[in-house]
Amino acid sequence: MFGYIVQRILAAIPVMGFVALFVFLLLRLTPGDPAAILAGDTATPEQLEAIRESLGLNDPIFTQFFRWVGQLLQGDFGTSILSGKPVIELIGDRMEPTISLALTTIILSVTIAVPLGVVAAWKQGTLIDRFVMLLSVLGFSVPVFVIGYLMISLFSMELKWFPVQGFRPIGEGLGDFLHRIALPTFTLTLLYIALIARITRTSMLEILGDDYVRTARAKGLPESRVLMRHALRNCSVPIITVIGIGFALIISGVVVTESVFNLPGLGRLTVDAVLSRDYPVIQAVILLASLIYVVINLLIDIAYVLLDPRIRYT
């Protein structure tokens, strides 16, 4: 068990290495002077020279890469062009709305999507099943911001149940926090439900045909017990896997949703950075998002062993 965990952690390191290499090469392969890109349009020749010096652009490219990775490992993500502040500080300021939105979305969509998928598989071919399947194709087809604007026009402008935009930290009262994060969460949840409900349904379908489910039914166990204890439990591995894979989807969705609802999170930070071509910020957000993705999937790999005693790695 311990060996397995160590092995998974070691396997995650080269993945992050390639992410860093890719982000590094992206800047170097851009036509033009990397220093000019990092300094922005208004930089003076002296500033350019200073950046060139600090990046060591005259050194061999390998030296440059490893020095850059060394700086990253010490938490030095560079300086924002727009505000002149360290990027890591900007990111720290913008974390809360993004984490709040991601967490509320994951919680809400798992609570809705798993039962939906179970029922769809249980009642395969019925109206409920078709509805769930249609919902999940819709989730892959409708752009998040279209859902967001539909929510705004229905719940904010027509019914006036929720505010159109804005964010309130959870520290300033749970009620206000929930009231303001509700619409963004519903928006993003619709997208995520599609993914999870689909996988839950598929893996349930496979398991419901298995012998031990038939045995459980044959010995007269109540249907709810068959579904929950025998079937759903064995689906946990694929469901957890897709929650991890879907995390990349959530990050993409968060960027868009934050723009629609004007939440001051990492997504807004990134979009503002695009408009001002503030590459150090974009680069840091990518590295951070990928790191979180890799760590979450690492935790999920480890969770397999705990969830499914059949999986044994030594």
Partner: peptide
């Protein structure tokens, strides 16, 4: 590595 980077970003 490439799949770890969210596609929109």
């Amino acid at each position: 590595g490439l799949m770890a980077i969210p596609s929109i970003l």
